[in-house]
Simulated scan of single mutants.
Amino acid sequence: MYTHNKNIITAGVPVAEAKRAIVFLHGRGSTAEDIISLNNHLKVDDAALFAPQATNNSWYPYSFISPVEQNQPALDSALTVIKDLVGEIISSGIPQDKIYFVGFSQGACLTLEYITRNAARYGGAVAFTGGLIGKEINMRNYKGDFQQTPILITTGDPDPHVPVRRVEVSEGIIKKMNAKISMKIYAGRVHTISQKEIELARQLIFDEV
């Protein structure tokens, strides 16, 4: 079973000059370079950009709705990579409430899992097609208060990898933890990120500043 080494791609504004930071989390089979290039479409121009690379291009081996133990130790390793990266960003002078997260598919699931296990005031988060991880959702993992952090979850209906029901349940849990959450379900949308979703993310998450 693989675990993840620290391998972070950076782009955007140098962290010492940036007003905010965005952590991008790629999907299964993809790369850090690929997901960080999403900012060419999001066009956030005042941020330091960070994208960790998963070992073998996958954060965990099985579906996100498999039993959690089947996705260990890779899942815990992935969460540690994000935690360490967030700590480094804060140490470099960008406060937690100016840190944003953007993930797609497996990266979206990881985004939601990380922030909900560590709920606090962040700049915002976008989960393009994802939900909380596990066959059963373990509420004991989720603690903290989002303090009205803006969070957007989008998905297609149906999606081949992410059941809409899990997206809806995830939204409900995160909302109860005091997030300013928005959910958008696109009928018949294929497993990708559409221009409409990018525009929605800009409007709801990144243009708030």
Rank of each mutant, 00 (worst) to 15 (best):
L49M: 11
N118R: 03
I65W: 15
V102R: 03
I22P: 00
K98P: 00
K19N: 07
S105R: 01
N118D: 01
R28F: 07
F24W: 09
D34P: 00
A32W: 01
S30Y: 12
A78G: 02
N56F: 15
N57Y: 15
Y62G: 05
Y114H: 09
F104E: 12
P52L: 14
I94N: 13
L79A: 06
Q96A: 15
L112N: 11
Q70P: 00
I36Q: 13
G27E: 12
S58N: 03
I115M: 11
I90M: 14
A32D: 09
I65K: 09
A18V: 01
I99M: 12
K83F: 10
Y60T: 06
W59R: 00
I89N: 05
A74I: 08
H41I: 10
A54W: 11
C109F: 15
A119E: 01
V68W: 08
K19M: 03
K19P: 00
L49H: 10
S37G: 02
E33K: 02
H26D: 09
F50K: 00
L85E: 13
Q96R: 11
R117G: 04
T116W: 13
D45F: 10
E113R: 00
L85Q: 10
D46G: 02
I115W: 13
E69S: 06
N39L: 14
G29R: 02
P73N: 08
L42G: 08
A48F: 13
R28I: 13
L112Q: 13
V102P: 00
Q53T: 07
A51Q: 02
A32Q: 07
S58V: 13
A51V: 02
N56P: 01
A32H: 04
G87Q: 01
C109K: 02
P95W: 15
Q53F: 09
W59K: 01
V68T: 11
K19Y: 11
R20T: 01
A32S: 05
R117I: 09
A119N: 01
I115H: 08
D46R: 02
T80A: 14
A48V: 05
Q96K: 13
Q70D: 13
L49C: 04
I115Y: 12
D46P: 00
F24M: 13
T55D: 15
T80Y: 12
R117L: 14
F64N: 03
Y60G: 03
A78M: 11
Y100W: 05
L75D: 09
T31M: 09
S30R: 04
V86C: 05
D46F: 07
Q96Y: 12
Y62V: 01
T31H: 08
Y114V: 03
Q72N: 02
E113N: 04
Q53Y: 10
K83W: 10
G107R: 01
D45C: 07
A54N: 06
K43V: 03
G93S: 07
K19H: 04
T31R: 07
H41G: 02
T80L: 15
L38F: 15
E17V: 00
S77Y: 04
Q72T: 03
D84R: 00
Q53P: 02
K19A: 02
S63N: 06
Q53N: 09
Q70I: 03
L112Y: 09
R117H: 04
S92K: 03
Q70E: 14
L49R: 11
K83H: 11
H26E: 12
L75N: 08
S63Q: 11
L85D: 14
I65G: 07
W59C: 06
T111G: 05
T111K: 00
P67Y: 10
D46T: 03
D76L: 10
